[in-house]
Each structure stands twice: as structure tokens, then as C-alpha cells.
Amino acid sequence: MSSRSGRPQPGWVNPPGHYLKRDEMYSLVGLVEYPPRAKYLFSAGQAQSRFLMGLKEGKILGTRCPRCGRVYVPPRMYCEYCHTHTLEWVELPGTGVIHTAVISYIGTFRERRKEPVIVGVIQLDAPGYTPGGYEFAGLFHRLCGVTPEDVMSGRAIGMRVKPRWRPPEERRGDINDIECFEPIEG
């Protein structure tokens, strides 16, 4: 230690704080419990609105940047790499490969799920990208028809998939209009 005599001790030595057990906290006098009210109506805007409408029709739409040729899924009205407007809409076949996949045993609030769900990133077949490159067009979604063994063994990664659409009458212009992505047979 290079410390001089009389120098105060470092700030980690006696960290202050009053720890509470769960019950102790709930029995504290003056504890305030408050249910918040924070509701919104998000403007999806030009790009996402058209994308959602496309989902309703069973289409996966993207926008193409006129300068670099990247096709964006989900679409944006601008190219984030060229900072220019993207005007041209492209319909993608919807097929692609699994980039990564995991098995979730818990829900949003960390509650255990009855049935695990498999989710992952789907790298979509889209023009404008180098194969195997760092960037790609893709979506985050559920995967079905993929088994936990496929995920754990690594077989799932690289598997070719396509969207499984909900029946047209159930589609609402929502990301859930795609039920999941499922492996392409054969």
C-alpha cells in the first residue's frame, strides 16, 4: 500500500446501506405502494404501419436503400448507414435461416411457463447483403417445429425456415399475425 499515514481509507471499506428482508420491507411504516398509470398509443409511422398492413395480407415487406442497396426488414423510412430516405418497397419471400435459437422456461415476469417456448432470430433471404456478413435483414420471433434437442445440439442454427401465418381472418396487422417460423420440409 502506498498510502500515507492519516490518509482516509478507500471508499469500498465500509459501504453504507440498510438491508431489508422482504417481510421487513413490507412492514415498514410509511411504505408507499403505488400502481402506476403509464399508457401510450405509439405512432407506428410510415414504415412500420405499412409493414404491419403487409403482415395482415400475409406479406413480409422491406424497404431498399437506393444508395447502398440494403433491404431493411423491419422496414424504416431511412437508411441508417447512408442517412438517406428509403422509398422503394420490396416483398420478401419470407424464407430464411435461423441465426440463433433458445428455449425459454419463463415468462415476462419471470414466472415459470407450463410449456417452454423456443424463440430466435431469423436471418431472412433478402438482397443487398454479403452472405455470412455482419449485417442482414431479419426478424425476432417464435420458432415452432424446432425441438429443444435441435437447439441444444446446435442443429437449429442454419436451419431453413418460413413463416407460419395465422388464418387471414385472425390477422390484425400485428407481429403476431405470424404465428411462428417453422422449418421448411425437406
Binding site: V32, E33, Y34, P35, A38, K39, Y40, L41, S43, A44
Partner: peptide
């Protein structure tokens, strides 16, 4: 254009 409902709520804050 779509306006999509959402929240940023939890059950309660303590």
C-alpha cells in the same frame, strides 16, 4: 397509419 397501444406499467411500485 397505425397507432399501437402499449404501456410502461408494472403491477405496483413499492
Amino acid at each position: 397509419v397505425i397507432h399501437y397501444p402499449g404501456t410502461q406499467e408494472v403491477e405496483k411500485y413499492v
